[in-house]
Each structure stands twice: as structure tokens, then as C-alpha cells.
């Protein structure tokens, strides 16, 4: 059993009178793929937004422990520092690429903090100072590596907005990976993909896990979730209703009830997959 990388404790998020997430606790372990599933409106994306600093939780703690010892309290860290210091990267449910910039430029922007440690160095680079040329070369090399990994090397100089949907999804993952994350949070990466693209995505995620990056995954495509996850957390109405290995979750009557409605306890898990 590996040590927990991310531990969420009693996380609560209220918007006015609406409680989107209530007293949620779960852990994601290092070098594992942890999936967060649940019906629409269960609060999955809210949890993601709390972890990545887009929302400030009403109460509760989110701790990130890097394997080398440093740890961060994400609930009180400024938004951009979560990506920069705590090394949490994310993608978005509705793709957010820099559409008017090329594929390569997208990956270069992702390495902003390596290329420009501070404003002074950024301004010195105007006059050719600060060894910028060398770091830029390294950044292009890293971008090239990831473009090869996601099969987009041939489109490096095309605007990101002109790529087909599936390629945009892969580019967004490559861009997140260029920030050297310890934890990669993916919000429905398989949405809108055809079965072949879903398979490719699963392989890519397994390769990323193999490279030492842990993954937190929101996904509705149960095929992908069941195939690649090491651990599944099921949410419904902002609460955790099940937590365990894919096989355990699949057999949990509460999960089936949440997906198909109460009183349908004789339904098989296969139907739950289809319903999702």
C-alpha cells in the first residue's frame, strides 16, 4: 500500500443555501489512478475546483503530500501556486486551450514558470540576458516529447483551435503534463470521444501513471473507469456513498441505487454501466 498523496478531510462547499459537497473525505494514493464518479450534479467538478483552487472550500482540509516529504494545504494556497508549488495540474470539462496559439505555443505557455522564474528575469531576457536561450531549448524538447506521446507532433505548428475534438482533449492533457505535475486532475477526459479514442486515452493515462504521476479522474465512461482505475470514489448529492476498488464499487448496491434510482435493487451492474 502506498502513502496517500492527496487527503481530503470533511470537505464542505456551500453556494448560498445549496450544499454542493458535504463533509466529504477520501484519499488518493501516489502512483495510482483514482476515479471520482457519480450521477450528474453529484458535486464531482466542485470537488475538483476546490482541489485546484478555483473555489475556496467552506470548511474542511485538502492536504497534498509529495513523496519527497513536502506537504501543502491546498484549501488555503493561492490559485496559481497550487499548480506552481504543489504541482497539481488539471484539465477542464469544456476544453480550455489557447485556441489562437499553436499547439507548440500551448505547451510553451505551460512551462512558463520554468522559462521565467520571476518578472526581472523575464525582462532581462529582452536584452538576451539570463540564459534564456538554453532554457527555451529544453522547453521545446520537453514539448516535443509530450507531443510525440500524445501523437500530435505532426500538428505542432497548427493553431490549437483548428484541431479536431479528440486531439484537443489529448493536447490539453499534454499541456497539463508539461507543468511536471505530481497529481493530474482530469475532468471527463473521455467525454465526446469515440471507442477507439477512449482506448487510446486509457493507454495514455496508464503510461502517465507509469511515469510517476498520480491521476485523479472524473469520468462518466464506465468502460474507461473500470479498466484503468486503481481506486474509485462514488459521490451522490455531495456525499460519498462508496469507496473501494472498481470491483467493490461495481457490486455496491448503494451505487446501483444512485445510478438507477431507489427500489431497483434487482438491477445488474451492467445496466448501471449503460445508464452512465
Amino acid at each position: 500500500m502506498t502513502a496517500p498523496l492527496l487527503s481530503v478531510e470533511h470537505l464542505t462547499m456551500r453556494f448560498g443555501g445549496l450544499t454542493a459537497v458535504s463533509a466529504l473525505s477520501f484519499a488518493a494514493r501516489a502512483n495510482q489512478i483514482t476515479a471520482v464518479i457519480g450521477p450528474n450534479g453529484a458535486g464531482k467538478t466542485t470537488v475538483f475546483n476546490c482541489i485546484t483552487g478555483f473555489y475556496r472550500p467552506t470548511s474542511g482540509t485538502i492536504q497534498l503530500h509529495h513523496p519527497e516529504g513536502s506537504s501543502y494545504a491546498l484549501q488555503s494556497l493561492a490559485g496559481h501556486l497550487i499548480a506552481r508549488r504543489a504541482k497539481v495540474a488539471r484539465t477542464f470539462q469544456n476544453i480550455r486551450l489557447f485556441a489562437g496559439m499553436t499547439v507548440l505555443e500551448n505547451l510553451m505557455v505551460a512551462q512558463h514558470n520554468t522559462l521565467m522564474p520571476n518578472v526581472v528575469s523575464g525582462l532581462l531576457a529582452v536584452f538576451g540576458l539570463g540564459g534564456y536561450r538554453h532554457t527555451q531549448k529544453l522547453a521545446i524538447e520537453k514539448a516535443t516529447t509530450w507531443l510525440e506521446a500524445v501523437g500530435l507532433i505532426g500538428r505542432a505548428d497548427d493553431p490549437a483551435g483548428s484541431l479536431p475534438y479528440g486531439q484537443q482533449r489529448r493536447l490539453e492533457i499534454a499541456r497539463a503534463m508539461c507543468t511536471d505535475p505530481a497529481l493530474l486532475c482530469l475532468d471527463e477526459p473521455a467525454a465526446g470521444l469515440n471507442p477507439r479514442e477512449s482506448d487510446e486515452l486509457s493507454e495514455l493515462l496508464i503510461r502517465i501513471r507509469g511515469g510517476g504521476c498520480s491521476i485523479l479522474l472524473i469520468e462518466h465512461d464506465m468502460g474507461v473507469v473500470m479498466r484503468i482505475s486503481d481506486h474509485v470514489v462514488v459521490l451522490d448529492h455531495g456525499k460519498k456513498i462508496s469507496d473501494g476498488t472498481p470491483a467493490e464499487v461495481r457490486a455496491d448496491p448503494k451505487v446501483i441505487a444512485a445510478y438507477l434510482g431507489e427500489g431497483d435493487e434487482d438491477e445488474t451492474p451492467a445496466d448501471a454501466e449503460e445508464a452512465a
Binding site: 478555483f54 490559485g79 499548480a83 495540474a89 486551450l97 489557447f98 496559439m101 512558463h112 514558470n113 497539463a176
Partner: peptide, 11 residues
């Protein structure tokens, strides 16, 4: 192009 994506990338 996208301020939110910038923030998510640590800018």
C-alpha cells in the same frame, strides 16, 4: 486567450 487556463497552469 483564456485567463482560467492560465491560472490552472500556475501563471
Amino acid at each position: 486567450e483564456d485567463e482560467i487556463a492560465c491560472r490552472a497552469l500556475g501563471i
